[in-house]
Design a protein around this nucleic acid. Structure first.
Lengths: 268, 268
DNA sequence: CGTGGCCTTGAAGAATCTCAAATAATGTGG
DNA sequence: CCACATTATTTGAGATTCTTCAAGGCCACG
């Protein structure tokens, strides 16, 4: 009996290795610079990344894995839909988008990832990545061999729990995006997007009120289910109402409250 | 440092226990009829449900858990957003919807679940259910104590893998819904929905071309991000074009091919 | 200093929503 | 078993939101 049928109604384009030009393709195997091995316990991101919430024995075990780092240039893909799944990736620096591709070329951006966030968990399901990850600026990631990780987890209940939580968190995150796409207006979507970005900047020690967007209007639009022109117009509208100052990709949130209200209960 | 910020931009209404009327609330603890204990290895759903792909030693261990069954009447909630998370549920009979609630009362249906499908994995993240599950008809579920399950998984790498796959599959499923909500037209959405339903019916041994919808137009609309009137009109349009026969909730797919084409590459 | 990519803005058009009304199906209480 | 309230669905017409198409400006880069 076929379980496939219980998952996706939508046929995404499977980009299998053969269809790639071997030369241009990004190596699926990360090439860790030997000098740059990383210990989670030392990492400045340890409180918001994979080891978040881990106690010492497990953290030490995690260190035993010696993740390879990998640099990714702006515009480069870390992996593509259809690639064989072997690693999950933790962002060290830079920003990524993940995206799905429909057979006719339509792209749907399914998330943006910044320092400390994990990418690639969607590959666990079928052993192949369902989405692609592309660097929006020069970036660096830790490449975590999933096999080793789950091996390691088999020895520790706590570690298993952390992994399970991470995946579940991804599910919850997507829930929230579904809510956004399914039942919110263009203004509400953009407001929700900005407030979320602001919170994530804050959590990383950056200003929550003034930041630089790493993604284009088109990418924001794809993520939020609207056209780039609509994104641009909505930005302008927010600015005119004094909620925001926008200069290309530089954003200053002037009135966070009204921005937050923009996607909250409208009492009728 | 606050990791919460890395997840959801959208504030869902947290329905904590205190706010409930104790009498009317569905018991969070399932009340298994002692006579009706269930063994996975015997279950007619074993090939499409939790134990799918499990070999014998693990299957036997799974049997050791003795899931409690629980009957749920049409319209009743199995759990709500905010409820403490303790069980995941496998549908035995009937159909469920899961849904998220925004503070202003807007509901977003995030999935429909039929026999063999699992519900509740979103609760792993925070120990509370993020969504609610409501029976669309009289139904019965297996209530699987998550604690026991992960305990059991800590003894078996294969079992861990199955669990991880299940969660990842949920992520992929939601990806696909995002694609749908983010970049498809009303017709494409409904077509994708119907084709998916058809496949799931088929996988369960029912006719893939003729079935009964368990959900209202409004629920379909919420799931697909459109208004119930638009759902109704799109059904009518499909019918006029000879792709479908619709009589209220009874559906007969006349031309599966053109329905499939309705959400596939449009060559320009 | 010209070129291409990205962003903004306007105007017209299309898709979808809102409001409204009619019909059918279902259940309720007498 | 009937009269009546209730709910789900369909359909129409007008309003609204968002998209499409088009043009122009800005900026980085070679």
């Amino acid at each position: 009996m076929n379980l496939e049928a219980t998952i996706a109604p939508i046929r995404l384009v499977p980009r299998h290795e053969p269809s790639r030009t071997a030369a241009a393709a990004p190596t699926p195997t990360p090439t860790p610079t030997p000098a740059l091995r990383t210990l989670c316990s030392n990492c400045h991101l340890r409180d918001i990344c994979l080891p978040c919430g881990m106690a010492h024995p497990d953290l030490a075990r995690l260190d035993g894995l010696h993740f390879g780092r990998r640099k990714v240039k702006a515009g480069e893909e870390l992996y593509r839909g259809g690639d064989r799944f072997a690693f999950i990736y933790a962002v060290r620096t830079g920003t990524f988008k993940s995206s799905l591709m429909l057979a006719d070329g339509r792209e749907q951006v399914s998330g943006f990832h910044m320092a400390g966030e994990l990418m690639g968990l969607d590959g666990v399901a079928n052993g192949r990545h369902a989405s692609a990850a592309t660097a929006l600026e020069d970036a660096e990631v830790c490449a975590i061999p999933y096999g080793h990780l789950s091996e390691l987890a088999s020895g520790s209940a706590e570690m298993q729990m952390v992994m399970a939580r991470l995946m579940s968190r991804e599910i919850v995150r997507e829930h929230s995006l579904m809510m956004l796409l399914g039942s919110m207006s263009a203004e509400e979507r953009l407001a929700a997007f900005l407030v979320n970005l602001s919170q994530r900047m804050k959590a990383r020690g950056y200003s929550p009120s003034e930041f630089h967007l790493r993604m284009s209007r088109a990418e924001i639009g794809s993520y939020l289910g609207m056209k780039l022109e609509t994104v641009s117009r909505t930005f302008s509208s927010f600015q005119q109402r004094g909620m925001l100052e926008v200069d290309k990709r530089h954003i200053r949130i002037v009135d966070l409250d009204s921005l937050t209200r923009a996607f909250e209960p409208k009492v009728h």
